[in-house]
Design a protein around this nucleic acid. Structure first.
Lengths: 221, 221
DNA sequence: TGGACAATACAACAAACGGGGGATAGCGCA
DNA sequence: TGCGCTATCCCCCGTTTGTTGTATTGTCCA
């Protein structure tokens, strides 16, 4: 069985060599490239592009372990560039940063996993294998924040709760861009009633225009 | 050392007994409750509320493993109710569903982890331990979808790319709810120019009204 | 140097929006 | 029974939005 081909991007020589040693000792893994900066890594890895995203070039690694804090270009920008050209390449960040900003920017840029540097060698190898098989390994602190981010999304607006069912129904159509007369036709009521409802909605939400109302609705979604 | 106290909510007696057996055999784990439906589980677990969220009641489990498909109330609704009263209680879903809808609804409801039923006994125990220590265990297929959801958020609309810098600037103000005359004042141009720009924007986005334009802008943000 | 494009501006007009004042009818609850 | 809330409807009026014309200026590029 072919070993999993790994590339490292890490500026600290001690850490890089330590990772290389771990990979060299582990059966089934091979460190095929190691870079100490993002510019070299991007330039070199893009030399072996997958013709149309359906596979990786011959010399390409299967998995990239990318530091975030690097001299010059950041690891996050490197991920963005690499993923744009080689979407099948599996990349995991490996860094000391565990704040939401770094985590979410990295994932938005296209990173497939996010590990903390204090990850044990066994967990690191397990993560690389997981990546290779299409998983998204995360240190448990990271998973926790990612999961927590789903709960924060819904910030219930108390103003919205004061709307009646009919008002919510009309606000929903309003948000979709329906004209007053279209709402009236949809609900089989007169346009005057639509105006009255919308007037009441605006009063409850403390807004004057449709756009302000929409911003209140979208903000918590 | 005290064992981790686990409660199960699972309607299939075979699976429930199998989980109980796994927990009974594992040192450091104890199955303290098992329910075959969500109503009983919620009613019973809420009898031991944490006074103000800072801890769990004396008879409470540390960790709950919750099925989603149950007779009557769903496991997702049960999580919502339990988390509202006992936010410190750690709950992981354990189910066969691996579609985005179920995953994200469960996480939004407050679930701390999400496991698939085909998870091996070793991984299950590891997940329970991870939960107990504040992590968010996920099967790797689940982690993959959760991470992918961060990338999908930004679906670049090619129509938006055709807008000039000035048009984007005006669209931005338009989205914030500015009136035409306010945009004119903000940018030191005439209201007629604002109308012209907005007209051009609508043409490029293939919309007729402000609200339709906003929906195009918000959709990819 | 001519053409394409972006930004600016004006005019006239129709449609849509939003505020103000009413009014009626039903429904539940004190 | 009466009060409050909700949903429904009407009129008047000014403002805002969006369309359709036309036109000037500047820039960039072939």
């Amino acid at each position: 069985m072919e070993p999993i081909r790994v590339a490292l991007v890490e500026d600290d020589p001690d850490i890089r060599q330590s990772f290389e040693a771990i990979l060299a000792d582990a059966p089934g893994f091979a460190c095929v490239q190691a870079y100490d900066n993002a510019e070299d890594a991007v330039a070199d890895l893009l030399k072996r592009p997958s013709p149309s995203g359906e596979g990786l070039g011959l010399g390409s690694p299967d998995v990239v372990i990318m530091d975030i804090h690097l001299p010059g270009m950041s690891g996050i920008d490197a991920v963005r560039l690499l993923k744009a050209e080689m979407p099948m390449l599996q990349i995991a960040m490996c860094t000391v940063y565990e704040d939401d900003e770094h985590i979410f920017n990295a994932l938005r840029a296209g990173a497939n996993g996010y590990l903390l540097k204090r990850t044990s060698p066994e967990k690191l190898l397990e993560a690389i294998s997981d990546l290779y098989h299409g998983g998204s390994p995360m240190s448990s602190e990271i998973a926790r924040r990612v999961v927590a981010s789903f709960q924060k999304i819904a910030v219930p607006n108390p103003e919205l709760a004061t709307l009646t069912a009919r008002e919510k129904e009309i606000l929903d159509l309003l948000a979709k861009g329906y004209l007053y007369k279209e709402i009236a036709a949809e609900l089989f009521i007169s346009i005057e009633t639509v105006k009255r409802h919308i007037h009441n909605i605006y009063e409850k939400l403390h807004v004057q225009t449709r756009t302000e109302a929409l911003n209140k609705v979208f903000r918590m979604h």
